[in-house]
Design a protein around this nucleic acid. Structure first.
Lengths: 341, 341
DNA sequence: TTTTTTTACGCAATCGTTCCCGAAAAAAAT
DNA sequence: ATTTTTTTCGGGAACGATTGCGTAAAAAAA
């Protein structure tokens, strides 16, 4: 079965007018008489006419659809960002197509091909942990595709970007750990190449340095797939805990790593914060209900989404090529709870 | 700036052929000579030609886009269902547009209008807690729009449906509570009109009855907005705990209610399961990390999504009107943890 | 050699909408 | 009464791709 919508032709035929007249009447053109307008408008209302967006897209050479590429929508941070994006996109008459890379570079490229082949007007992207080759994105951007990056940005591509103040967030969190008396603070991070990893680890290192603690490279671990695959987190945790000089606290740089860490620690009967302190980036709303309540750094996810879509619409609707790009940096929030002493 | 894709005309002009020849060559028609085909294919590859899906949609009178309407994507259950939907839709060359009602009837209608005006080929819907008037949906369905319901279904509309075995899930959970020694088991539910509420409360009542416990209507509370708005959960909890004969356990019928309940109880210093036991429906992956680890009933969310999109594609791609509809009922899983003794 | 068949391609309509032109009718100016 | 202007509307091309139909040339059959 098909759902057949009314067209402008139906109206024209029923009223004995031409399609041009009907079209103009619907758009309230001055060159249509008030009587004809009334006739058309009333009949359109009656048969519940709505312009076919596909025909419009073809004519206007724009789809009024934007693509959002994230690693996973089930992740609180990303679903909050998407909420922010959709709230504005919706008001502006844009569709949002969401694609998930699940931290795989291959899937990212596939999704990108899919989104562009569906002729999106622009893209909002947070790259996967695996992505080190940006040539596909560069190519797309160079061909004129409007792109806005958020969270995991690509420094080599010059466009609008939206990030949290990862450096300060990590710095403050690490400082807090030090103030609480922790001496050997380990870090578990996404791959080093990722912008957020660099920034957050830089903040971590600076906080250590400012407090006269030498960063021990053996205490800095990376999870290639951001904790998405298998027992990645388990492995690095075992490495950390197997050292002669065990860490007394762990700083994690992403949602999945933070909750993943707590899970593994609990499974192994390691008390938090008794045996080891835990503090990390997380936007999950339920971390305060955890045992122990997690100390976390939160990003203003919804707002990041709103700003990203604002930038994108600006790019899409600009008449002239934009050459002046902004990077919006938003403050993070630190919540100290019971997973740190 | 605009992103201009190559068209069939570009190929035709460059090669001195007609667009029909190019189109046929690309579709490997038998009435095009091998040499011409080779020429066209190679040039198409060179300029990275991809057929314009919008033009195809207009011609084929289908958008290859489906709409998904849920109350909130940040809810684990729904994001898991969406993952299931997208995994299959993607493979079948369909787009997915997601809309959120946030448990508001008005927003639901607005979203429905939006989705149909964007000419989706079909809809997958879980209605909001506020929805009691199904006339808009009925109208849409009657006009030929393929619709599949999941989770919160509409019994009055005859189409494919996918649900968990809510009755059995609730029955088993309540039985478990009784076996654990709980005597006065309260229930906090979404509005009574909602299909899942009816089914889950029916299971709850039957379990009580089968164990010789009379259901006390004062122990059954409803949250009009599913715990989305303000202090709904707080209010019903206070009502429950203010009774002369306090409940010794609470059974909650949805994700938001379950976690909301735990939050309020903890805020008020009420020990779980010491003072009161808690068990409810939830698909959140982190409930085992909670304090206390939550006892939950889980639905096979991903699978529900897969089945729903399967049904929908079947409806969309059927040549003849479908009159024989199925309701798939999937088993739930019970996880007993520390929020019940 | 002539006729028939096959091959290989082009023309034009179509999907729904907009918009540039042209034109008839009505109104205004001469 | 005639010309000019304005109002109001229709014809048709365009957006990108597909497809039924027509046809020239080449190949095959007579």
């Amino acid at each position: 079965m098909k759902f057949e919508a009314a067209t402008i032709k139906d109206i024209a035929k029923a009223l004995g007018l031409s399609t041009s007249t009907v079209s103009r009447a619907l758009r309230d053109s001055h060159e249509i008489s008030p009587e004809t307008k009334k006739l058309v408008l009333e009949y359109a209302e009656k048969i519940n006419y709505h312009p076919n967006p596909i025909a419009l897209s073809l004519k206007e050479r724009r789809s009024r659809t934007i693509g959002v590429l994230v690693c996973e929508i089930a992740n609180s941070f990303f679903s909050q960002v998407i909420n922010g994006i959709e709230s504005i996109a919706y008001k502006s008459g844009y569709n949002v197509i969401i694609a998930q890379s699940r931290e795989s570079f291959d899937r990212e490229i596939l999704n990108l091909q899919y989104l562009t082949s569906r002729s999106v007007d622009g893209l909002i992207i947070s790259v996967s942990t695996e992505t080190t080759d940006f040539s596909y994105l560069k190519d797309l951007h160079q061909k004129g595709m409007p792109i806005v990056f958020f969270d995991r940005i690509v420094s080599e591509i010059d466009t609008h970007k939206v990030i949290a103040d990862n450096y300060a967030g990590a710095y403050n969190a690490t400082t807090q750990l030090i103030k609480s008396g922790y001496k050997r603070i380990a870090a578990i991070s996404n791959p080093e190449m990722l912008s957020i990893s660099k920034e957050r680890l830089a903040g971590y290192r600076k906080a250590l340095a400012d407090n006269g603690i030498e960063a021990d490279e053996a205490l800095i671990k990376y999870c290639k797939h951001g904790g998405m695959i298998g027992d990645e987190v388990n492995i690095v945790l075992l490495e950390l805990l197997g050292q002669s000089q065990k860490p007394d606290a762990i700083f994690t740089t992403s949602d999945k790593l933070t909750t993943g860490c707590l899970r593994i620690l609990k499974e192994n009967g390691i008390s938090v914060p008794g045996d080891i302190g835990l503090l990390g980036f997380s936007n999950n709303d339920l971390t305060e209900l955890f045992d122990p309540a997690l100390s976390v750094i939160k990003q203003p996810a919804f707002e990041m989404g709103e700003i990203a879509i604002g930038y994108l619409l600006q790019l899409i609707e600009s008449k002239h090529p934009v050459t002046d790009f902004e990077t919006k940096v938003l403050p993070t929030e630190l919540f100290i709870r019971n997973s740190t002493k």
